[in-house]
């Protein structure tokens, strides 16, 4: 590899590369660390914000809010999980919140996002794989779910709908929605085992 030809060579040799090290550099007020983290997770955060909010301007605003929040407040605790997980939880939570403020009749699942691990954990392989690899892994895992399982999980996750709202929208019994969602999630865990251990 001819790294010296790369314009980022100097940056790469000076900055630590793991998320944790970058986060520590960020806490040490190194703006370049935020730039590297943005390059790493900007599209993930923006893509999620756009999927939930369905509005590019709001997605941009939220992406900015998430990264500036990381810089100014830095509430991420490495002992509680991966940085990417923290960013997606925060993004999803705030995006759903904005959706709710658009329409107060929206109810949404927030239990999972409020409940953050208290277990000091080693960093998961998910953090080490690159974004494209992870994306492919998760896409493959989703194809192994039934269409119904995937649909109810995505409606709950991206649209913030409660199970009863999903049941109403799809015109199926509530119990069926619950079963599909639970089985879908458990199946995903089995398929994505390597990424979360």
């Amino acid at each position: 590899m001819v790294e010296s030809d790369s314009p980022n060579y100097q940056l790469r040799t000076q900055l630590p590369q793991t998320d944790i090290e970058l986060f520590r550099a960020l806490k040490g007020r190194q703006p370049s660390a935020l730039g590297v983290l943005y390059d790493r997770y900007g599209s993930l955060v923006y893509g999620l914000a756009l999927r939930v909010l369905k509005n590019s301007q709001e997605a941009e605003d939220l992406t900015q809010e998430i990264f500036l929040n990381l810089w100014h407040k830095g509430k991420y605790d490495p002992a509680r999980g991966s940085l990417s997980s923290y960013l997606t939880i925060l993004t999803r939570s705030r995006a759903i919140d904005k959706l709710r403020s658009r329409n107060t009749s929206f109810k949404f699942l927030e239990r999972w996002s409020q409940f953050i691990s208290t277990q000091p954990g080693a960093h998961t392989p998910v953090e080490q794989a690159d974004l494209k690899e992870r994306s492919q892994y998760v896409r493959d895992a989703l194809t192994q779910l039934s269409q119904h399982q995937r649909q109810v999980l995505e409606m709950a996750y991206y649209e913030g709908l409660s199970q009863s709202e999903i049941a109403k929208e799809l015109d199926i019994p509530l119990g069926t929605v619950k079963t599909w969602a639970r089985q879908g999630l458990l199946k995903l865990r089995k398929t994505l085992q390597d990424l979360i251990k």
Binding site: I89, R92, S135, V138, R139, L195
Partner: peptide
């Protein structure tokens, strides 16, 4: 919860 948090990668 981590599994659910992986959904956006897709």
């Amino acid at each position: 919860q981590e599994v659910l948090g992986l959904l956006p990668y897709a």
